[in-house]
Amino acid sequence: MLNDMNESGVLAPYREYNQPLFQYGVRHLLVNDTEVPYPDGKLIVSRTDTLGIITHCNQSFVAMSGYTQAELIGAPHSILRHPDMPSIAFKGLWDDVQAGNIWHGYVKNLRKDGAFYWVYATVIPNVRNGGVVGYTSVRRKPSRAKIQAAITLYQTLKTQENAHWEGPQS
């Protein structure tokens, strides 16, 4: 279950979005433009089942996301989905890991308080007895140069997605 964000605990000022999430309908997001720097030396680790439901998260995940462990376990990983991220990035992720491959990418994540943090993420399928039983994701600190390149790329992709989305409606 994924609840809408509400203004309690969210940093002001914030912008509001209605973010479509695969299998969860639309989530109401409150987004603040404060970046929380990724701490040196830490790794954020989580595991999900094959549907992307979080089954394990480490302390760094809890600290950086702002959610409690109880809030994260059982939630879909898209609880971190930031509206600045283009859908195609996550489509690429799912296509790769469902095909049994490793996925890497730079991701802007949304915190519970509406702020954000950048990560360099690697996701691998967990293969047991020949079958995929879930996915492990490890996130680490990205360089500023790589973040800047990702911002430029994702803005372009978002513009294309929005144009494609709005076209039929106009």
Binding site: L43, V45, R47, H56, I102, H104, T122, V123, I124, N126, R128, T136, S137, V138
Partner: peptide, 13 residues
């Protein structure tokens, strides 16, 4: 053990 091996694999990739 499998979990730690998965982690090492993600870091080596």
């Amino acid at each position: 053990t499998e979990f730690m091996i998965d982690m090492i694999d993600t870091l080596k990739a």
